[in-house]
């Protein structure tokens, strides 16, 4: 059973080289990765995550708008009864914001300096705990 992961980019941020590198690394780790493409709204992302029935949703934002966009994605998922989807986040996210986002239910935040391997290993560890 392949783990299904969605990489999503909310808001007006057109820089997605990192998202593509990560999508490829997760593919190479044996996961099925759905990439939404850039400039999606929180509601589009939540709708897509529901239709694709993903195990993990990875939000990436490099524009600095994470504190307004990420909580909206969480709300949109809740509204669809899909708040069991594990959310992780990455981007230019300061330490103090990381703590706030985690308090809102985002499982882990990968800020500047995080390696691809760290993220892949973290998602793999989620899979292990999922399969008991």
């Amino acid at each position: 059973m392949s783990l299904r992961v969605m990489i999503a980019k909310p808001g007006l941020d057109g820089h997605d080289r990192g998202a593509k590198v990560l999508a490829r690394a997760l593919r190479d780790a044996g996961m099925e990765v759905i990439y939404t493409g850039i400039r999606r709204t929180p509601s589009e992302i939540a709708e897509a995550a529901v239709e694709e029935d993903v195990d993990v949703l990875g939000l990436n934002c490099l524009s600095g708008a994470h504190m307004s966009l990420f909580p909206k994605v969480i709300e949109e998922l809740k509204a669809r009864g899909a708040d069991d989807i594990i959310i992780i986040a990455s981007g230019i996210i300061p330490e103090e914001d990381s703590e706030k986002l985690k308090a809102l239910g985002i499982r882990e935040v990968f800020g500047p300096g995080s390696s691809v391997k760290e993220i892949v290993d973290f998602i793999k560890s989620l899979d292990k705990s999922r399969n008991g």
């Binding site: 593919r27 780790a29 044996g30 996961m31 099925e32 990765v33 990439y35 939404t36």
Partner: peptide
């Protein structure tokens, strides 16, 4: 090779 996939159709 890995059994994984990038499912990219949704981008369009």
């Amino acid at each position: 090779i890995s059994g994984g996939a990038v499912l990219g159709d949704r981008i369009r």
